Amino acid sequence: MKIVYYSYGGRYRDNPRALHQRAVSRATIDAEHLWLADPRYAGDFPAGTATVPVRTPQAVAALESADLVVADNHLPAWGKRPGTTYLQTWHGTPLKRIHRDALSLFSSEDLLSRLDDDVTRWDVLLGPSEAAAVPLRAAFGFAGSVPVTGYPRNDALLAPDAAERRARVRAALGIEDGRVAVLYAPTWRDDERVDAGLGFRLPLDPDRFAQRLGEGQVLLLRLHHLVPDAQRGRDVRGVVDVSDHADINDLYLAADVLVTDYSSAMFDFALTGKPILVFAHDLEHYRDVLRGFYFDLHEIAPGPVLTTPDEVLDALADLDGVRAEFGDRYGAFRDRFCHAEDGRAADRVLDLVLPTAVVTPASAARA
């Protein structure tokens, strides 16, 4: 059989990456694996990985000849042949509104219509949790199967080698033993896209962080892929720009605390059990004007909802206090949004979408 993968505009990332790695490791799966790749990210793909350039006739031909298509975002138009299964994994638990629930995202009805055409080809849409499956189905108007499997990309966070991987990544990033690594991963904003010529500002200033906490903490700056160059060229002691790091799971494991805003990162990071600070400096604007939410942030947040840089820095200086105050809320958050995650999501998903002839007996018994 032929499996074609696509992630984030031609990168080697996310749920498709996790499913590819697991499918390759399962010896009884006899398949040709092919990625739609952007040449700019060729270095992220493992040596020997078969690729075709994304957004080319070769890519369309690959999709039209596939037995299984695995994607985490919308694909360009292609003719789906009978017998092909299109698995849409999506790329995160939606806190912020998406697709038809966020019409301000789209410059024209024509663009939205083209994305809706892609939805009509989907056979399976993954649900990371029961709570997330509801808005995902509704936003896309998807009437097909939405199995709640957990996310394959999160299996690595629960893998037996997670501690060893953490040590290896921290060493590679130059993080000394005993130093607190703060992962700062804000989402993008529809009115601050650098690639659209719009302004971008970083609410938590790296210089202020370094001045206040730089002796005992290091800031790992992970910008959204739509604004990756916004801080490039800045050299601040104790701040490491990890925006180009290929696998965010490395950063989740290496970090000791997450600072984010409305990103789906908080739902994945919660699997680590480490503190989460929500820096909602523009909460009212983002909620009421820009995008909107599916869940009340104050109700579900697994940590403090903070509105100023000083509040964030104060919380980072007292992480023990954060753990003590928000332990119960953190547990409730995990129960609601992480209940399907057990480190075996990739096997569950492959068992769902692969013909029974190529499913390993061991994994089928566990499903």
Rank of each mutant, 00 (worst) to 15 (best):
R97H: 13
S113A: 15
V70F: 09
T84N: 07
V69L: 11
A66R: 06
S107T: 14
L111D: 10
H91E: 11
S107L: 14
D118Y: 13
S113V: 00
F142I: 08
D72E: 02
P57A: 02
P76H: 08
A138C: 01
R55F: 04
A159P: 01
G83E: 02
L105R: 14
L126H: 09
V119H: 07
T93W: 03
W122R: 13
P147A: 09
P57W: 05
G83M: 01
G83N: 02
A159I: 00
V69Y: 08
L136R: 10
F142K: 12
R97F: 04
L75S: 09
D155T: 06
A66T: 02
I98R: 07
L112F: 00
A61L: 01
T120L: 13
Q88L: 07
G141W: 08
F106N: 02
G79S: 14
A131C: 02
V124H: 11
L136M: 15
L115W: 13
Q88N: 13
Y86T: 12
Q58R: 14
V60F: 00
A132T: 07
Y151D: 09
D72S: 15
G144T: 02
A66F: 04
L157I: 04
P76V: 05
E64V: 11
A71K: 05
S108T: 14
G127F: 04
N73K: 12
L126F: 07
P147C: 10
V60I: 14
G144Q: 07
A59D: 06
N154M: 09
V69P: 01
G83L: 04
A156L: 13
P147S: 08
V124R: 10
E64N: 09
E64G: 11
A131W: 01
T120G: 00
D123H: 13
R137M: 03
F106S: 07
H74S: 10
A61M: 01
G144K: 07
V124W: 12
R153A: 12
F140Y: 15
W90F: 12
E130A: 15
D118L: 07
Q58D: 15
L111T: 13
S104Y: 00
R97C: 08
T93Y: 13
E109R: 12
E130C: 04
A102M: 05
V148D: 11
G141S: 08
L87P: 10
G141E: 05
G92S: 00
E64H: 04
D116V: 01
K96A: 06
V69S: 05
R114A: 09
D67Y: 04
A71C: 15
P147T: 09
F106P: 00
V146H: 10
L125M: 15
P57V: 01
L115P: 01
A138R: 15
R97S: 11
P147H: 05
S145Y: 08
D123C: 12
H74G: 08
T85S: 03
N73F: 08
R100T: 15
L87T: 06
P94A: 11
L158A: 11
D101I: 07
Q58G: 03
S65M: 01
Q88T: 03
A143Q: 12
L75P: 12
P147M: 06
T56L: 02
P135Y: 05
A71R: 07
H91T: 09
P76N: 04
V124N: 06
G92V: 04
V70H: 11
T120N: 01
K80S: 09
S113R: 15
P152Q: 06
E130H: 14
V119N: 10
R137N: 03
F140W: 05
A131Y: 01
L105Q: 14
A131P: 01
P76C: 02
G144Y: 10
T120V: 06
